[in-house]
Design a protein around this nucleic acid. Structure first.
Lengths: 334, 334
DNA sequence: TTGTACGCGTTATCAG
DNA sequence: CTGATAACGCGTACAA
């Protein structure tokens, strides 16, 4: 037991009193200002250490106007793609002593902007992965989100640093690869309709397959289960190749195909997007459009960092994904 | 209207002035205090909305003494196990309007405590996944971390709410399962030596296999690559079953085995720990000791929440994992 | 080089 | 029910 008070909160004043200096001096010492007598600084540091003093981050944030925290919004913390982006941001930001406030918007478009705003208020800046929000809504709130960086999404008329991926190029590579293998009919396991990356991939697929390959679009989603369930329907179209909205979906389909005895790639080929870590560890290894996910996070941080420190802003970057051909695609059976 | 102007930082005073009331009243309205004249409250809300006012979270945190943020420390944001725990915490905390400050300690024991402390300062509480830190160090810093909850780890003499898993029980189930299948020689792909969960599993394995099965311990690690590389060495021992430190390692081994033409489970059986999402989507599906990862996060939040709100603290919980028998284990070849 | 005093934006206390 | 006023803990001009 003990007293119900909280004597464990040692403030700058207590340190000052114990060291017989003013709070200002303690502050200077804690912030490594050079204008303090070395001898005095040492004494203050000793006292501070012996008292276990650590500056209150909140008060410091208020006084300085910055918190040393950045916010990151992801649609789903369970999605390996965003996990990697988060990891990239976190590590990069951590190297410059910034912490990350992460928020999962639950794949819920309405929450994306609300949560973004709310979370942004507790941080100095924002890295936004918001594939579901409408352009208009984003444009409307952009002003209250600054400084922020957009990941994996482009919004016309929005002048915000963006880190993205040229999925169209990836799609073309996929289609070329499949065509070269002799495929003439492919099924696309479509992601969430509201997702811009799904729209981008779908549109590019239509363009790339035009008069070259038949494309069946299967309603699916973005989770394992979605791909697992959609596999049957994809199969029913007679397609010889399945293109998943992302790797997670593709792996879900792969699981189902294996279960029902459909051989990959002999009976059917499977392709995904992202190149999540497990894509290279499943059997057969998944052929996929490889996106540098952590690099995406790193570059996002670089831009946010520039914004925060008023440095020169790196140009927008758009990564060209690489088609990683592995074991899940093969010549069409005949 | 609404767009166009950019009120850099609109404060409670500006709202107060515009609504011709005192800041105190605005504060009351924003905090939904019932002691405000409904008519007045409506007016204030309108003004606040029209000005796009949102209370400054940092100032609010300072004044209230709590931030609405909790810290979560994980050894590696790339590990699906901790990703799930994080997700569980995040979603549970989010439901009560708490945000999550996440820090990746890079699997670096020394940083675990330092980062924990540093991060804890910016939050109201802490969920700590620190499998590498020594007991002594943890005991020493525990006082400055409170309130906090420990996940997946027990420290003797530390009176802190803990959410853990009875790995020993899982290990026994694995050994029983393998023995029943006729296996008499197993190889354990050992995780990081400093990891308490590895120590726990290894110790339990020795006990469970005692005079019943030969156990070869292979130095490995916690990543895909580690399992991938260790597969050969495991094979060389002549073991008919491989037990991975975790699913990630087991999947890495699975990949290598598949690559070199060793059939699973016909030639060799493979088991993992955790039951990460992909364990059920690989081929063959991975037999593994299933841990309720998100539930771990949820329960951790429940306890932290109780601590934060001074509610009755739920008893420590220790989940008994379930052996999820899938396709990667089978009768020993003869 | 060091100390004093004020501001950061809110909340809480206490009069009115 | 509402409004001054004092914290909250720290950073920093400004003065000494």
């Amino acid at each position: 037991m003990g007293s119900g008070d909280r004597p464990d909160t040692v403030t700058i004043h207590q340190v000052a009193k114990a060291a017989r200096v003013s709070p200002a001096t303690v502050s200077r010492v804690m912030n490594r200002r050079q204008s303090v007598d070395p001898e005095l600084a040492r004494r203050v540091q000793q006292v501070a250490a012996s008292l276990g003093y650590q500056p209150n981050a909140v008060a410091r944030g208020l006084a300085r106007g910055r918190t040393g925290v950045i916010a990151v919004i992801v649609p789903d913390l369970g999605n390996p793609m965003f996990q990697s982006v988060l990891r990239g941001v976190s590590r990069a930001a951590g190297n410059e002593d910034y912490r990350v406030l992460v928020t999962d918007s639950h794949e819920f478009p309405l929450e994306e902007t609300l949560l973004s705003w709310e979370t942004r208020l507790r941080a100095d800046g924002l890295v936004l992965c918001a594939p579901r929000t409408h352009d208009q809504e984003l444009l409307g709130i952009a002003g209250k989100l600054e400084p922020f960086v957009l990941v994996n999404r482009h919004v016309d008329g929005m002048n915000v640093p963006t880190v993205s991926v040229d999925y169209a190029s990836g799609v073309r590579a996929v289609v070329a690869h499949l065509a070269w293998l002799g495929h003439t009919r492919a099924a696309y396991l479509s992601g969430p309709v509201a997702s811009t990356s799904n729209q981008e991939r779908l549109e590019s697929l239509h363009e790339a397959t035009h008069e070259r390959m038949t494309l069946d679009v299967i309603e699916c989603g973005s989770m394992h289960e979605d791909g697992y369930e959609a596999a049957d329907r994809a199969l029913a179209t007679g397609a010889t190749a399945v293109i998943g909205y992302n790797d997670v979906v593709a792996l879900g389909a792969l699981g189902k195909l294996h279960e029902i005895g459909v051989a990959v790639p002999n009976d059917i080929s499977v392709v995904g997007f992202d190149d999540i870590p497990f894509a290279r560890y499943c059997a057969p290894r998944l052929t996929t459009v490889s996106v540098p996910q952590e690099e995406l996070g790193l570059q996002a941080w670089n831009r946010l960092s520039a914004l925060l420190h008023d440095h020169a802003l790196p140009a927008d970057v758009c990564f060209t994904p690489r088609l990683e051909v592995r074991g899940s695609t093969g010549p069409v059976a005949r």
